[in-house]
């Protein structure tokens, strides 16, 4: 399985790495933080997770695969929730539906719910929530009509 999570840019990448270590005991030297095109020059061991800059409000792209799964035994959502709670960050991750602009938003206290991102933006930008999300009282909620519900 793979992990593809986009964390809040306001939280330093180092805080995300430390949260991964605190919750799952992942050695920090196995988590690469930096530009993707500099990865091959990274002198450390081959990483099991990457945190690379991608721009925008959710500008930390976290990617990992089976090796991280073996270490954590966590699903993508569980891992996002754990890191968000410890690092006090928000995150976006795939909601599993075919809709490209529907995401799960995970809040700083680990709650989550579906949001609609802007299809016309190159960066991940939340337009509104598709359902009420505990911990996000300021996020407008626009429940979708039945014909656009994918869950």
């Amino acid at each position: 399985m793979t992990y593809g999570i986009y964390f809040d840019s306001r939280v330093p990448a180092e805080a995300l790495r430390q949260a991964l270590h605190a919750v799952y005991n992942v050695p920090p030297e196995l988590v690469y933080t930096g530009p993707h095109d500099a990865l091959n020059e990274h002198p450390g061991p081959d990483p099991i997770a990457l945190i690379t800059p991608t721009g925008g409000q959710f500008g930390h792209e976290f990617s990992a695969g089976d090796r991280l799964r073996e270490l954590t035994n966590a699903t993508e959502l569980e891992l996002a929730q754990a890191i968000c709670r410890v690092a006090r960050a928000r995150a976006l991750l795939d909601d599993g539906s075919p809709a490209p602009d529907y995401w799960f938003l995970v809040t700083t206290n680990g709650n989550y719910g579906r949001v609609q991102t802007d299809p016309d933006s190159d960066e991940l930008t939340i337009l509104y929530a598709l359902e009420p999300i505990t911990g996000e009282p300021d996020l407008p909620v626009v429940p979708p009509p039945d014909w656009s519900r994918t869950w």
């Binding site: 793979t2 602009d101 598709l130």
Partner: peptide, 22 residues
């Protein structure tokens, strides 16, 4: 169709579904 009116393909001739790493 998404709530914004954006239409997205799900399947069809010549349409290939790829995982994120693919």
């Amino acid at each position: 169709m998404e709530s914004t009116g954006t239409v997205f393909p799900v399947s069809g001739p010549g349409f290939v579904s790829l995982s994120r790493p693919e």
